[in-house]
Computed example of a mutant assay.
Amino acid sequence: MSESTSRTAIAQIVDTMRALAGSHPGFRPVHAKAVVCHGNFRATPQARSVSRAPHLQGEAIPTVIRFSNASGNPDAHDGVPDARAMAVKFQLPDGKNADILALSIEGFLARTPEEFLAFLQAQLPDPATKQPRPDAVPRFLEKHPATAAFIQRLTQKPVPASYGQCSYHGEHAFKFTAADGTSRFGRYHWMPEAGEALLSPDDAIKRSANFLREDLESRLRNGPVGFRLLLQLADESDPTDDVTVLWPADRPKVELGRLEVTDISPTGMADERRMVFDPTNLTDGIGLSADPILLARSEAYSISYDRRSKGE
């Protein structure tokens, strides 16, 4: 796959996402409905043994957190079954940022940008009839068992009752390097301190259309909402360049730190327009893997940001 081919596929991914979401000028083509919050993160002592990254040395680090639904419709009901996401921007002492993006479902549904584009295009309506092609997605899933496995995990998981009582999983592997030069690959997992709370789709859809924001507002009136950040360490046999493959559950996990979500941003709408959360936005001590989906995301976010900032 050439660089120009990849760039073309990435631009087509953004175009196809926008087509599937419908016209919502100024919004992201996915994860359009969100709540932006402020918080603080403090690393555990053992985090230093994993990485020399500045936010993993034990100081309190201010953060910006974005909770979102997967839909590209900013007015979607919060009870619609789908993935939820949590993006965290660490505001580092040197004035730079580092980001973690995570989903409520582990893994991802495609290994490459081209594969992801093909899955999105299978969902487009037939140009002649303007109706969905009933056989297109099933045919794709037959040929792509990893995508089928992700969809199965998604459909089997009930609807989160709260942004603050949902676990979130980083899809990609990153290379963590400690001060002594030792390196390990790992994947992030955010675990809610209050435990998980889930709803059946029937119960979720009966709630207020914005119940996730309302729940978060209510919780924050009583104090911070806490999450623990765990890092699942890869074995030498675990692939670090294939986002569709889940590592065995018994791989060791290191607790990297604790996040406190303290308040909802009073400038949330402006934050939405200007902020980009990008998993390739890293700092010394954390490096990229060769995962082609990970390497494509920055370009996709750049295209998306450019379009929404123009009100498209």
Rank of each mutant, 00 (worst) to 15 (best):
M1R: 00
T5P: 04
A9C: 08
I13C: 09
T16D: 08
M17E: 11
A19Q: 07
A19S: 06
L20F: 02
P25L: 04
N40Q: 11
R42T: 06
T44W: 00
A47Y: 05
A47Q: 09
L56A: 07
L56F: 09
E59D: 12
I61Q: 02
T63E: 03
V64Q: 05
R66T: 04
S68F: 01
P74Y: 01
D78V: 00
D78Q: 00
K89N: 05
K89L: 04
P93H: 04
K96A: 06
L101H: 02
L101W: 03
L103W: 07
I105F: 10
E106S: 07
G107V: 08
L109N: 12
A110M: 05
T112F: 05
E115S: 12
E115F: 03
F116V: 12
F119P: 08
Q123W: 07
L124W: 03
L124G: 14
P127V: 03
P127G: 07
Q131H: 13
P132L: 07
V137P: 11
V137E: 15
H144S: 02
A146G: 03
A149K: 10
A149W: 07
P160C: 02
S162N: 05
Y163R: 01
C166N: 15
G170C: 11
A179R: 05
D180W: 05
R184K: 13
R184D: 08
G186Y: 01
R187V: 02
A194N: 08
G195E: 15
E196G: 11
A197H: 04
L198C: 10
D202C: 00
D202V: 09
A204N: 06
S208W: 04
F211I: 12
R213I: 03
E214C: 01
R219Y: 00
L220E: 14
F227Y: 15
R228D: 15
R228S: 15
L231S: 06
Q232G: 13
L233C: 09
A234R: 09
E236M: 13
P239N: 09
T240W: 04
V243D: 05
V243L: 07
T244H: 08
T244P: 08
A249F: 00
P252H: 08
R258L: 15
T262I: 09
I264V: 13
M269Y: 03
A270W: 12
D271W: 13
M275C: 10
M275P: 02
V276F: 03
V276Q: 07
P279T: 13
T283I: 00
G285S: 06
G287H: 02
L294T: 12
